[in-house]
Simulated assay, not measured.
Amino acid sequence: MTATPSRAHLTPLVRKYLDDERAEVESIRVDPIDHAPGTPSTGGLRRVSGTTTCGHTWSFFVKSLHSARHWAHIGVIPEPDRTEFVAAFPWRTEADVYTTGLPLPPGLRLPRLFLVDDLGDERLDLWLEDVRTAPGEWDLTRYAAAARALGRLAGLRPADDSRPRTALRTYVGQRLMNHVLPVLRDPALWRHPLVAAHADPLLQMDLDTLARRVPALLAAAGRLPHTMAHGDAGPQNLLVPADDPGRFVAVDWGWQDPVPIGFDLGQLLVGLAHDGLTEPGELPVIHRTILAAYERGLADEGVPTRDAAAGYVTTLVLRSAFTAIPAERLGEPVTGDLRELFRKRVGLARFIADLGLALRPDTSHI
């Protein structure tokens, strides 16, 4: 929804934002924000900003959430599976994170929440702090700081044994086995010039080897210690605020079922790589840096670190090895940028496959 909200709706929010009970709204501007359309629960993003009659500026980041039954792409789910998918998809996850008093470690915070606006019909808007981010690229120092904070987050949130541990198994059963692996096993994928130009002769075989190990990897992941986590901790979701660049503002919280220890490191590694912003040759040092820092974060909270590497790599393989090559983009017009993206993403697939093949059969060690 991009309709301009009324002054009556905005006035209490602006007063809270400015900590001024006399503030009156003068101008209002609504700017839609582009976002990837793949997340079933995200209905839209927009920035609502303006001024007061006294000349003060204000700005909110508004995220619309909805049940998966409202998802524009619900048709990609086979009709026999649709009802179960809608019922199981945790569309309120992010709203729940903001309203349940989540314990966070030093160096990590949530954006300020101004309003959860329940719109009815399983739709709601989150009115959040519009975080102004600091300039600068993700160097190894920033990666290490983020990984340590994520390790401390895991250490602060041991899994409650009463909570179901189904998210990873559901992902593997529904998306990976039914949709991703059939595409990966199609010879046409490997003959396509965008893939064939960059894939080494063994990559297809190695990914197929890992695919045949998926049940064993999933079982091994289930035996590891579990924690709560961010769930989608890519750099894009760990904002560096301009007014406090020593901390991260964690947004777009994902899976909130218990997950194997080390789970968050997977998205930290691949987040920028998925956007074509990481050279494959940079991945090994990022990998080593974030694992060491995450283990330091666990140790800060008095949590044993022995299983972190296995949890990280096992879940990285299950979640990202088979989707590293962006097969969904093969039908697009070929441009120089697309060729570069495939070069980097094929390199990402090669790196993750090598990590996965190095796992011992019980995945208890790397």
Rank of each mutant, 00 (worst) to 15 (best):
P225D: 10
I261Y: 00
D264T: 06
A242K: 13
V259C: 05
T278F: 01
L265S: 02
T278D: 09
P284I: 13
P241M: 08
P258I: 09
P225E: 03
D257K: 09
Q256P: 01
V251G: 03
H230V: 01
F248L: 13
P280F: 11
P241A: 09
I261H: 01
W253P: 03
A229W: 00
I286F: 10
A221G: 10
Q267G: 03
P245L: 07
A229V: 11
Q267E: 13
Q256E: 07
A219I: 07
L217F: 12
H230R: 07
I286G: 00
F263G: 01
D264N: 06
A250E: 02
D257M: 14
W255M: 12
A250H: 06
G234K: 12
G266W: 00
Q256T: 06
H274S: 12
A273D: 06
L265Q: 01
G246T: 14
V240I: 15
D264F: 00
L272K: 12
L283M: 09
H226V: 02
W255L: 08
P280M: 11
D252T: 05
P241S: 11
A220W: 03
T278P: 02
H230A: 04
N237E: 05
Q236R: 12
R288G: 13
L239W: 06
V240Y: 03
D244A: 15
A221I: 07
A221V: 06
Q267M: 12
D257V: 10
L265W: 02
L238K: 03
L268N: 04
A220D: 13
T227F: 01
P245I: 09
G262L: 02
R247K: 11
P245H: 10
L269S: 03
D243W: 12
T227D: 00
G266Q: 02
I261A: 07
L224C: 05
L269Q: 00
D275E: 15
D252E: 12
W253G: 03
A273P: 07
F248T: 09
P280H: 08
Q236V: 09
G271I: 07
L239Y: 05
D257Y: 14
L239A: 04
G266T: 05
A219G: 12
R247V: 15
G271Q: 06
A229P: 00
H287W: 13
L217G: 08
W253Y: 15
V251M: 07
V259H: 00
A216R: 14
H226W: 09
W255F: 11
V285M: 14
